[in-house]
Amino acid sequence: MKTHNLVLRINGEDRQVTVRSADTLLYTLRGRLGLTGSKPGCLNGDCGACTVNVDGWPMKSCLMLAVEAQGKEITTVEGLHDAPIQKAFVEHFAFQCGYCTPGFIMNCHSLVNNHPGADDKKIKEWLESNICRCTGYAEIEAAVKEVLGKKS
């Protein structure tokens, strides 16, 4: 079995890890590095629960191999500290069971940073890649818009 010794830059730290060629970034984060905030929901890129940021952009970590993540700046939900979007999710009750929340938060966090002036169409284009089964999305919409409103 072919393995690789990698150094991955995660949440501002260099992390050494040994992976198989086939190991996804999601599996590596959770199973090798103990960063279980990113959640497996489908392992197929359909649900967005595993979304992390790679070089500032949202990426479904189930669709990226660990070996592809070398040399990139990776941020997981554990790497956010009192980000405005986290506070907005708390105050707007934008989660219930909380399982899709890390993925939504990482996606929303990238959105508000990359498109501080995002309109409804842009928000939909970004957030429709994630599934929340508990809320009806109204609270998530309110949370994102509050943060966007403060930015613009």
Binding site: L35, T36, G37, S38, K39, T76, V77, E78, L80, Q86, F89, V90, F95, G98, Y99, T101, P102, I105
Partner: peptide, 12 residues
């Protein structure tokens, strides 16, 4: 459990 759920420290 709000802050645990938005920070990735909530465990399932």
């Amino acid at each position: 459990e709000a802050w645990d759920k938005v920070s990735g420290t909530a465990r399932y």
